[in-house]
Amino acid sequence: MNKTKFKILAIVDAVIIVALFIVMFSLKGQYNEQAQTSVKEQVGAYQEKANGVLQEQWLSMDQYGMAWKLLFTTLTGDKTEATFDATAKAIFENKDARLKQLSYMYTAAGINPEAQNKINEAAGMADKLVIKDEKGVKEVACGKNCVITFTFAKGKLVSQDYKALVEYNMTENFKLEAPAAFHFE
């Protein structure tokens, strides 16, 4: 190649280098923004999922505690339908006692008060205890996938089925999936 051709090659190279630097810097900003947005979205979605599991467990624990209290109080009381209804209502409406019982269970499990407050603030309290009341058969929620039954005839308790509560497996009902692989979108 002669000198002129090398000159042209050098100029073309210089132009390409400048163009590549421009492309590189513009992509840099774009990738940075993309990476931050993707991480924020995917981390946020996973944390929401994780918090959802904790909140759902909290609400189930609330129902679990209320169900045992209602069962025990019913078995030690006069076993009338009227007393059962009044007890269920009183237990459900006494949010301070529910929170105390919940907090005690979480503290016994080694969960610190800060974590409990955080879950409680987001989850609130369970909004149901007695979920069905038909012809003397009362179904009481005792957690996620847990129902116990009280059967009344002529206003008196004839039977109670709380097998589901005795066999309730809290760990099996609440499982958080491991995070999915990161996708750069």
């Binding site: 467990q57 624990m61 016994a108 499990a109 080694g110 497996n169 809290m170 609440f174 958080l176």
Partner: peptide, 8 residues
């Protein structure tokens, strides 16, 4: 937390 509460 889920495991500790479940076991307890």
């Amino acid at each position: 937390i889920v495991e500790y509460v479940g076991s307890s």
